[in-house]
Each structure stands twice: as C-alpha cells, then as structure tokens.
Amino acid sequence: MSAAYSGSSPRSEPDSADAAWYRSFGAELVAQGLSPRELQRMVAETRAEAESAGIAPASLFGPAVLFARELASALKEDGAGSQATEHTPGPVVLRLHDVTVRRGRRTVLSNFTLTVRRGEIVAVVGSNGAGKSTLLQACAGLLRTSSGRVERTERFGYAPQLDALAPLLTVDEHLRLFGVLDGASQSRAVPTGHQILHRLGWRPNGSQITRTLSGGTQQKLNLALAQLASPELLLLDEPYQGLDALAYEDLWTLISAWRGSGAGVLLVTHLLRDIDFVDRVVELPTPDSSTGDSKTKDHAA
C-alpha cells in the first residue's frame, strides 16, 4: 500500500483544511482496501470535481471518512473495483527502436527498445550510471543517438532533473515564455500555470524572481512548465526532487490525472514506493565496463 497518506504535518497555507480533508479521504480509502490505482483514481476524480465546482471538498462531499466509505461501498456493490482501474492504452506517443548512446568510449545505452502509449505510466529504474537521465534526454531530442531510431509525438513536455529555469526571470515570465514556445497564448499560459501550481500545493507570486525560490518550489515550477500545453507525452526525471511529503502526494494525484486525460508518462525514479502507481517498470542495469553492453528488463508493476 502507498505511504502517501501516512501522518504528516498540514500545510501552513490557506488551503490546509482542504489538504487535511484529502489526507483523511485517502487514508480511509486505503483502510477500505482500495488498490493504489483505485486510490489514485478516486482522489484525482474527487479533487477535479471539487475544483470544477469551486467548492471546498468538505462543503461539497461532507465528512471525508464517510464519503470515502460510501465510495468504497459503491465500488464493491457494482463490481467496479479492480475493473474500474483497468484501462486500454491509446496510440503510441513514444517509440525507441534499438537506440544506442555512447559517450566517448563508453556505451551508456545499448540497443534499447521501448514503447509508451497514451494513458500509460512507465517508470525507469536503475543504479547510478545506468543511463536513466541519458535516456530521457534522448527521448526529448536533446541528445544525439549513436544508432537506432526515436519516434515521438510533437506534443511533449520534459522536466529534467537539473531544472532549466532562468534565475533572473520571474515565475510569470517563465510561464509566458514557455507558453509561447508551446504555441499557447500568454493570456492562457499564466492562469493555466498557476492552476497546475495550485494543485502542487503552491500559490505563487507571479512577480517573484526564480532564484529566490526554494529548491522544492523551483521543482514545482519546472513540473508546471512541462505540463503547460497539455502534452500527449510527459518525460519526468525524478520529479519529486526537493518536494515534501504533501507535495509528493499532490504530484502523484496530478500524474494520475494526466494519465486519466490521455497523456503517456515516462518517469525516472529510485523510490520503490513509486512502483505501486505505474503500469510498467523498465530496469536499466549498469553496462558492463568491458563490453559496454546492457540488457534491459521490462515488466509490469
């Protein structure tokens, strides 16, 4: 079971009552025996409904524990439990075929093949030096491959492990800049970015200079920029870096919502608890120092 709803201190923000409600809601769903995928789906749908209505969840749904028990009971009665979490992946948004990447004499990736479809979350794991970040850079077109083929949808977002933020630009300047690059209007980019940041537990001051933000807050902005244009593919390199426990919870709720909206997600992680929330896990072993070869393991979560 997920540890995302274990006890942690509430946010010192105006929405702390809402955050506490969602924690209680999630904890009761876990107690009722929902699987991690069911849990993520129910939390995402409940949050989306409350945000769409513009009403606090406690006012809209009543006590969190009672509402969670009602939902769990309804799932059991109509048999929707495990079936509701099954989904049919959509069209391919990323395909790598026999991709090899070399750095000098060292082979980082060797004959690597991978397919990611819309509505699918794929996790990449492996030891340091296995080529996880290199893989995402190749997927994003930032790194030339030595051989093989990379096919990718044009609508994609990339959040690197080392953020690509400009330290002297403000939050809203980043949103406007990335919005223009992604083909969105400036008038739409800023409110969309703020909405994503709200869902990550931060109410931004748009005029704040990026270098004055904490590492975790910069990572939230990094994630919002990647999702700004509602891409069909999201490439996330250890997206939880610098996030506290509540923000980590919010991140997975958001990723679940992205998957629910039809995006494919490829993320690098070293956290074992993340594996409960994904559809497939790809393991990148460290290449043999003498041959540079590696064999990739791909299995269902």
Rank of each mutant, 00 (worst) to 15 (best):
S9L: 14
A17V: 10
A17M: 12
D18Y: 03
A20D: 09
W21K: 02
Y22A: 01
F25N: 04
A31I: 06
S35W: 02
P36I: 03
P36K: 12
E38P: 02
A44M: 07
A44W: 00
E45G: 01
R47W: 06
R47V: 11
E49D: 12
I55R: 15
P57A: 07
L60W: 08
F61G: 06
P63W: 01
R69Q: 06
S73A: 12
A74W: 07
L75I: 07
E77Y: 08
E77D: 13
T85K: 07
L94K: 02
L96A: 10
L96H: 00
H97T: 15
G104Y: 05
R106S: 09
V108F: 01
L109S: 00
L114K: 04
L114Y: 06
L114H: 05
R117K: 11
I121V: 11
V125Y: 07
G126L: 06
A138Y: 02
A140D: 06
S147K: 11
G148F: 05
R149I: 09
R152E: 10
E154A: 13
A159Y: 05
L162R: 14
A164I: 14
A164V: 13
A166F: 14
P167T: 11
L169E: 11
T170E: 10
D172Q: 11
D172I: 12
R176T: 13
V180H: 14
D182S: 15
A189R: 12
T192R: 15
Q195L: 15
N205R: 15
I209T: 15
T210D: 05
Q218Y: 10
Q219M: 14
K220N: 12
L221H: 01
L225H: 10
D237S: 04
D237W: 04
P239M: 09
L246W: 02
L254I: 00
I255Y: 05
G260Y: 01
A263R: 05
V268S: 00
I275L: 06
D279E: 00
R280F: 03
V282P: 05
V282D: 04
E283H: 09
P285M: 00
T286K: 08
P287Q: 03
S289W: 09
S289H: 08
S290Y: 07
D293K: 09
D298E: 08
A300D: 11
